[in-house]
């Protein structure tokens, strides 16, 4: 038994070192005064300072945030509706196809999704003159499309744990289906919707390939700017930018994780008490 736990402990240690070491090293080197990564020239914040002067990076970051906010919000609405129709609407025409369409974006290689979305925009432009030009709008649509699938999966798994008798009770008391959804279902799945929104938000912030396909001239998101720089090799100011982004997201996720875990525990006690 002892032998086995040592083995498991070692795997964990190596596994987590593998997952985290590169990021930690990158963060450390972001404070390196030297332009060349391999030489440690002493602690400095110069790369952080240079980021502030980099209008291209700041514009791209603002654009990415804007796109992520809008697309995450719409994706949460659509993904929640999709989750509802999978769990609450019984049989409907084309349900099987719908199930497939919801799950496919989760694993579809990004190059395919990106290429096909671009081609649809080009075709509609030819046919009906929309969209007039590609850019922010088309990136938002593309991001909604793939992130709504993630929201739908999260919401759906939460919906399947919602006690059906609560919704039936609301209906029995005179609530019409849409009122029941608003009064009972949505409050019960709210944490899943928040989690879905956060995931959609980060997926949008992070996406490079799909945005590269559907973007037009002038609309450069943050990952696009970063990618065009790092394609040429390691860049110290990108180290600084990466440190900032990873720290902000990391802290955000950890806080969100703890808040949700607490609420989850509260929910479970609440739920068990009502059984």
């Amino acid at each position: 038994m002892r032998q086995r736990s040592t083995f498991l402990f070692t795997t964990l240690a190596f596994g987590y070192a593998f997952l985290y070491l590169p990021i930690v090293i990158l963060m450390v080197y972001s404070f390196n005064d030297s332009r060349i990564q391999s030489v440690w020239n002493g602690f400095s914040l110069r790369w952080y300072a240079s980021l502030l002067d980099n209008a291209q990076v700041i514009d791209a970051a603002l654009l990415s945030l804007q796109i992520a906010l809008i697309s995450a919000t719409i994706a949460t609405v659509l993904g929640t509706l999709a989750g509802l129709s999978m769990t609450h609407m019984g049989r409907f025409k084309g349900r099987l196809l719908f199930t497939g369409l919801i799950a496919a974006p989760l694993i579809m290689p990004e190059v395919i999704t990106g290429l096909s979305l671009l081609l649809v925009f080009v075709s509609t432009e030819q046919l009906i003159g929309w969209p007039e030009s590609r850019g922010t709008m088309t990136i938002i649509i593309a991001h909604i499309t793939f992130s709504m699938a993630f929201v739908a999966v999260i919401v759906q798994s939460r919906l399947s744990t919602v006690d059906k008798s609560l919704e039936e009770a609301a209906m029995d008391l005179g609530g019409r289906p849409y009122r029941v959804a608003i009064d009972v279902t949505l409050p019960l799945i709210a944490p899943a919707m928040v989690a879905g929104w956060l995931l959609a938000f980060t997926l949008s912030l992070d996406d490079l390939v799909i945005a590269s396909f559907v973007s037009g001239p002038g609309a450069n998101t943050l990952p696009m700017v970063i990618f065009s720089k790092v394609k040429l090799g390691v860049a110290p100011d990108i180290n600084a930018l990466a440190t900032l982004i990873i720290t902000v997201i990391g802290i955000g996720v950890v806080i969100a994780g703890f808040v949700m875990q607490r609420r989850e525990r509260a929910r479970i006690t609440e739920y068990q008490a009502t059984r």
Binding site: L19, Y20, L21, P22, I23, I25, L26, Y29, Q37, S38, L198, L199, T202, L205, D206, L208, P223, I226, F227, V230, G233, V234, I238, N239, A242, I245, I246, I249, G250, V253, V254
Partner: peptide
């Protein structure tokens, strides 16, 4: 956590490690 943090930046982190 890594699942939430930028995929692009995590790949980039290896560039420095492997150079």
């Amino acid at each position: 956590l890594p699942f939430w943090t930028s995929f692009l930046l995590r790949v980039y982190a290896w560039m420095g490690m492997l150079s």
